Computed example of a mutant assay.
Amino acid sequence: MKHDQLIALEAIVSTGTFRGAAERLHKSQSAISHTIRQLEEELELELFSRAAYRPVLTPAGEIFYREASRVLRQMQGLRSTAARLRAREEPELTVAVSATMDLDPLLPVLADTGQRHPATHLRLRMEMMGGPIARLMEGKADIALASLDGVPLDDVEAEPVAEVIIRPVASPALNLPAGSRVLSVSEMQGHVQVVAAGTGGAAHEQSRDLLPGGLKWTVSDLTAKKKVILAGLGWGGLPDHMTQDERRTGALLSLSVERFPVRRTMIFKMRRRDQPPGAVADELWHRIGASGR
């Protein structure tokens, strides 16, 4: 069974005649007839009834044609994939994102990129602390979205794309006074401060806003951190977009804590200067910049 035989079969069914198929495929009618006869002999099936003026698929031909159409679509998909690869589209693209960033504005851009470039496997890595820049400099990410803390600016191209607000919060069950009064370090030392472990190595573990002399729990990610805080087991800083509903309903309270101010952190898109971007990575880079502000 050959590809050109399936093409001829599809052309006959689409045009309704051997002559129409011949004109579409720029071949002689006898060549089309011979191609189909060879296919029928190989399959040991009669695909067309030739009793009428126009060829009509036999019951077996109907079933075979449905499967042949599926195979032809798959072949076309493979050709499209090969064309994209020839255009130097990357087989894989990794975006490393700070876990503090709100993904909602980014997801439509990623979804559209995935639809426009289905041959490129998109990887989204959520990282803590210096994780995004570590993955970028290790060559494990094409684009990083994070703050500029610890970033080697001579080696990295960076543009601002979003702002994240992080504030200390606690459950009412912790019995900490909410409001404008600043809670001193000594007042907070008897309560567990919940922090999330970094994914960028020891140099990127949390040190800023970590109260001295206090109790501390370390969790693996912000989702776990939020659950621990909601359960009344400790307090800590979380991005506003993660706590908006809970602060509105009173499930979480905003705190004023000495040495832990409400922080506004700018998120930058970053890529390495020493590595030319692939076609998909370059397109995504510019679209994040256009939509993330």
Rank of each mutant, 00 (worst) to 15 (best):
D154S: 12
G236N: 05
V182T: 10
A134G: 05
L174K: 14
G200Y: 00
K226S: 04
V195M: 13
A178D: 11
K216E: 09
G232N: 11
R135E: 07
E159F: 14
E163W: 07
A197Y: 06
W235P: 07
L183Y: 04
G232T: 13
D142S: 01
A202D: 10
G200N: 02
A203V: 06
Q193T: 14
P239E: 08
A158C: 14
S184C: 10
V228M: 14
A178R: 05
R123T: 12
L230G: 05
S184F: 06
D154L: 11
V185D: 08
M126D: 00
Q206M: 15
P177K: 06
M188Y: 07
D112P: 11
G214T: 00
L122Q: 00
G131W: 03
P168I: 02
D149N: 11
S220F: 11
L122F: 08
A119L: 13
A111F: 01
V194H: 02
P152N: 02
G150Y: 04
G131R: 01
P172H: 03
V164I: 15
Q193H: 13
G139T: 05
V192Y: 10
E163F: 06
P160S: 12
R116H: 15
A158V: 14
T120F: 03
K225H: 10
L215V: 15
M188A: 15
K140G: 11
W217T: 14
R116Y: 09
I229F: 02
G214K: 05
